[in-house]
Amino acid sequence: MELRIFTEPQQGASYDELLAVAHRAEETGFGGFFRSDHYLKMGAVSGEPGPTDAWTTLAGLARDTRRIRLGTLMTAATFRLPGPLAITVAQVDQMSGGRVELGIGTGWYAEEHSAYGIPFPSLGERFDRLAEQLAVITGLWETPPGKTFDFAGTYYQVSESPALPKPVQDPRPPILLGGMGAKRTPRLAARYADEFNLPFASLEDSVAQFGRVRAACAEVGRDPERLCWSNALVLCCGRDDAEVARRAAVIGREPDELRANGLAGTPAEIVDKIGRYAAIGSQRIYLQVHDLADLDHLELVAAEVMPQV
């Protein structure tokens, strides 16, 4: 089981704070540093110091880190056009020496769109646009050097694109898709995903959705074992109940609720729950950390959880 760190900077974080977490994650052996792609804090108006752009952040981290994998859970397809996004991700992949992964989804948070003047179409149209974006992005990256790429979609049209720049990773950076959609999500994952991720899903819901994606793979003749299966869960680890309670209070949650819905408790409790996710086929866990100033939290997990999973 690989453990990665997952942050939510829209809740209030500067680049320097994110860099400190990425550095500590890299130093302590976590496999990746991922961040959300949101422009508005959830649950309040302020969110000081304000949002940081996901791909601007990752470009900086590409130069300020050396080993750790970098990516998004999940870039909103509503935020960017597919051609420019393909260019951005390929450039950041070059800047990182081939360590970037693109998690992408439909976008869901209506309020951030209205707060920053971003169109927010219906869910059906957002899925249609996501499908076309995936076709364009992968098509641009996978077009052989010296060839051009064309695409005639309902929402996006590409004509005689030189399909540059190329990412370092060949044929392209890994693509992460996820979510609990019962029909279109599994079909898109079967066609485009290198990793399928479920955020904040129970064991039972994970089993059901992993099964839907496996069935969709079978329908298109794809081996589901070629996908990586992963979950994202809120982290709240402590050496004892008092430390768990202290960390839970800082992020405004209750220990019992976090034990039920996240990864909370002592290292032994967390190792046990990770083992239950591993038993249903999950191969990677994204540990969502909310208190970015608490770098000792990462140290504890690296020292007492990581060696046992």
Rank of each mutant, 00 (worst) to 15 (best):
L164S: 08
G146C: 00
T154K: 15
A152M: 05
Q169I: 13
T138L: 04
W141V: 01
P145G: 04
E142I: 00
P162D: 15
F149Y: 13
E160G: 14
P162W: 02
Y156H: 15
G146Y: 02
E142A: 03
F151G: 03
K166E: 10
L140A: 12
P167L: 10
T138H: 10
Y156W: 14
S159D: 12
T148A: 05
K147F: 04
P165H: 08
Q157V: 11
A152P: 03
T138R: 13
Y156S: 13
P167Y: 01
I137D: 08
Q169T: 12
P145N: 07
K166A: 03
P165M: 08
P145Q: 02
L164W: 05
T148G: 10
L164R: 13
Q157R: 13
L164N: 09
F151K: 00
P144H: 06
K166L: 06
G139I: 04
T138I: 03
F151L: 05
K166Y: 01
P144Q: 01
Q169P: 10
Y156V: 15
K147P: 00
V168K: 13
P165K: 06
I137M: 00
V158L: 15
S159P: 01
F151M: 08
F149T: 01
F149K: 07
T148Q: 13
A152G: 14
T148C: 06
A152T: 06
K166G: 11
P162C: 11
Q157C: 07
T138S: 04
Y156T: 13
P167A: 05
P165R: 03
I137H: 06
F149Q: 11
G153D: 15
L164M: 15
T138W: 06
